[in-house]
């Protein structure tokens, strides 16, 4: 024992203060998760990647806003911007999702959580919402930057700002779909392993592997096959929902009359991921 670890007698005080309920505990895990997603409270090293990705998405947003302000053309609208950033989102969740769940598994912290008044569903719910928020911020903040650029340079006054807002709000909704789908899939994959590198590789692999399937289906001569091709890849799935829900978004993916099918698959996919996550943590929590 080093000298510093000598036990000193300073008296113990019992705690009579308030004990907060479930909501506060969920809030604490949520805040902790959101901070962790951007590397706050962690070493400088773990801040590099999230902020690099975030920096790039904001930079792209600033450039788009600038191009629009000076050249008057719109290279990408808000919805197309989200689609264009898809690879960055994949990289982001591949790093952040393991940071949120694999890390706890790896270090064996879970028994400490689950020996407290906390259920697996609470833990997962808070982590999931934290990741959804992180991904949404990743795209939503640059979209807001684009909106600011457009709003300050609009030539039609207040009505132009309102029009622009009318474009932004649905796009934020679209971004939320992105965030929900990506958070669900990546958390599920990350929860399967305590090794962060494996988890990150697995997440990228899932999104990568599905893209060629989409490509093959798109190249089929049948129009129906092309319209259903997006179902094979999570990214295209979201685009399909975007096409159906936000006509003005112009995602460029033909879905024909299958829009609702896309929406149903999104809902099913997210629900399945969350249920599997829960099943996984039922097992982990009782360890």
């Amino acid at each position: 024992m080093s000298e510093a670890s000598v036990i000193h007698d300073i008296g113990y005080q019992r705690y009579d203060g308030p004990r907060l309920g479930r909501r506060a505990v969920l809030g604490a895990i949520y805040a902790h998760g959101l901070r962790a997603a951007f590397g706050f409270g962690r070493s400088a090293k773990s801040k590099i990647f999230p902020w690099l990705v975030f920096g790039i998405t904001i930079l792209v947003g600033v450039i788009l806003a600038a191009v629009r302000a000076y050249a008057g053309v719109i290279p990408l609208n808000y919805v197309q911007y989200a689609d264009a950033m898809s690879w960055l989102v994949i990289l982001f969740v591949a790093v952040v999702a393991p940071e949120l769940v694999s890390r706890d598994m790896r270090s064996g912290v879970l028994p400490l959580y689950f020996s407290r008044p906390l259920r697996a569903a609470d833990y997962l719910g808070a982590k999931w919402v934290a990741l959804v928020t992180a991904v949404w911020l990743l795209l939503g903040v640059p979209q807001f930057v684009m909106f600011l650029g457009a709003a300050f340079t609009t030539k039609t006054g207040m009505s132009g700002v309102w029009d622009e807002l009318g474009d932004l709000l649905p796009a934020w909704g679209y971004t939320l779909i992105w965030a929900v789908v990506f958070a669900s899939i990546s958390l599920l994959i990350a929860s399967l392993t305590g090794k962060r590198a494996f988890a990150a590789g697995g997440i990228v692999a899932v999104f990568l592997v599905t893209t060629p399937i989409f490509g093959v289906l798109m190249s089929l001569p049948s129009r129906t096959a092309q319209e259903l091709a997006g179902l094979a890849s999570p990214m295209m799935l979201i685009s399909g929902v975007g096409t159906w829900l936000f006509k003005a978004g112009n995602t460029g993916l033909p879905v024909g009359r299958f829009g609702p099918v896309y929406a149903i698959e999104v809902v099913t996919l997210v629900a399945a991921c969350l249920l599997l996550l829960l099943a996984r943590y039922r097992k982990v929590a009782s360890l």
């Binding site: 705690y15 203060g17 004990r19 506060a24 604490a28 895990i29 902790h32 959580y113 407290r116 008044p117």
Partner: peptide
């Protein structure tokens, strides 16, 4: 952090 998971307010 674990104190907060046990329901303690942040400062406490």
């Amino acid at each position: 952090h674990l104190g907060r998971i046990s329901g303690l307010p942040r400062a406490a």
